[in-house]
């Protein structure tokens, strides 16, 4: 896992430029929106895995919960867009904090199995509560309310482009916030816990509290992305909860331990699936192979590879 890497001039600018370019390069704004939504989920996964060293199979549960809860709030309580997203954000944080608090009582494989067990339990709960979730059929007719604040409507978000712009703004905020979180006392301590938990404990940190907060933040962002996904599709499928593995793979392939990596990982996943879905539906085999190659040879993922290439070029110039 690569250490934090600071782009001269700030990676925020690079991301902002990418956000402008994405819909121009890609065939449809919907595809670009999908990339950003999964990039957010991968970013959240990265906070746990890349920075905290916590491999969670519970990300799908947070993603699904965000989709369901935002949708239910909009359908039954008739809340607006921002309130629905806020609902997803807060409930995601709460659920993840609870799951995290239980799961981190164990370490290693037992920790991983606990996250998996909670994820499966959530799946069957969602399946059983079909009055609320639509069960196996998924929750249909999820609305996408207009963007409004205090009665003033800014945009109805009806067109794919308008929705893309909205998601891009949310993504940029989340990306910048994540960068901030990593550079905060909390983030640096999280990295320390990943490096050597006994030592972190010895210098005075209650490592459990840090892990729980990491879960809460990750859960909040993942739920937010789940809610945005439901609004994109106008649909919240049960399979959302089984997304844990895909989110993990995007994160690792892109580069665990770098925020830009998550954007790259989600981008390559979504683009490859879009290009190959019709020609060769078995494209996921490539992802399996890429995952193995990354673990064996390119621990920093795609971004790590680009980073070392950049460094090599810069060094040559200096000579």
């Amino acid at each position: 896992m690569a250490g934090p890497f600071v782009l001269p001039g700030g990676s925020n600018l690079a991301v902002a430029a990418t956000l402008v370019l994405l819909p121009l390069i890609l065939p449809s704004p919907t595809l670009a929106t999908e990339i950003l939504i999964f990039a957010m989920a991968a970013l959240a996964c990265n906070l746990l895995l890349g920075y905290g060293g916590l491999l969670s199979f519970g990300q799908g549960m947070f993603f699904g919960a965000g989709a369901y809860l935002a949708a239910i709030a909009m359908i039954h309580a008739k809340v607006g867009l921002l309130v629905a997203l806020l609902t997803a954000l807060c409930s995601g944080a709460l659920i993840a904090a609870l799951v995290g608090a239980l799961a981190i009582r164990r370490t290693g494989i037992y920790f991983v199995m606990l996250t998996l067990a909670f994820n499966q339990t959530a799946y069957f709960i969602a399946y059983t509560l079909d009055g609320w979730t639509g069960g196996d059929n998924g929750l249909l007719d999820v609305p996408r309310p207009p963007l409004a604040l205090f009665g003033h409507i800014f945009s109805d978000l009806g067109s794919p482009t308008a929705y893309y712009v909205f998601v891009a703004v949310v993504f940029l905020i989340i990306f910048m916030a994540s960068g901030r979180i990593i550079a905060s006392p909390f983030g640096s301590t999280l990295i320390a816990i990943r490096e050597n938990e006994a030592r972190a404990d010895a210098v005075g940190y209650n490592t459990r509290h840090f892990k729980i907060v990491a879960f809460a933040i990750s859960g909040a962002i993942t739920s937010l992305s789940g809610a945005l996904y439901a609004m994109l599709l106008n649909f919240a499928p049960l399979e959302n909860i089984q997304m844990s593995e895909s989110i993990l793979i995007m994160t690792v392939i892109g580069g665990a331990g770098s925020l830009l990596g998550s954007l790259l990982g989600a981008g390559s996943w979504v683009i490859i699936s879009d290009i190959l879905a019709d020609i060769w539906p078995r494209w996921q085999i490539l992802m399996g192979g890429a995952l193995i190659l990354v673990v064996l040879f390119l621990r920093g993922g795609i971004w790590g590879g680009i980073e070392s290439l950049l460094k090599r070029c810069l060094n040559k110039k200096e000579r």
Binding site: R180, A183, S184, P185, A200, V203, G204, Y205
Partner: peptide, 19 residues
């Protein structure tokens, strides 16, 4: 720096401030 920050204990949980 991390060792010094350890004295803050749970006050180091601030994730919205910069180091």
């Amino acid at each position: 720096r991390l060792a010094s920050q350890g004295r803050d204990g749970d006050r180091a949980l601030v994730f919205w401030r910069s180091i």
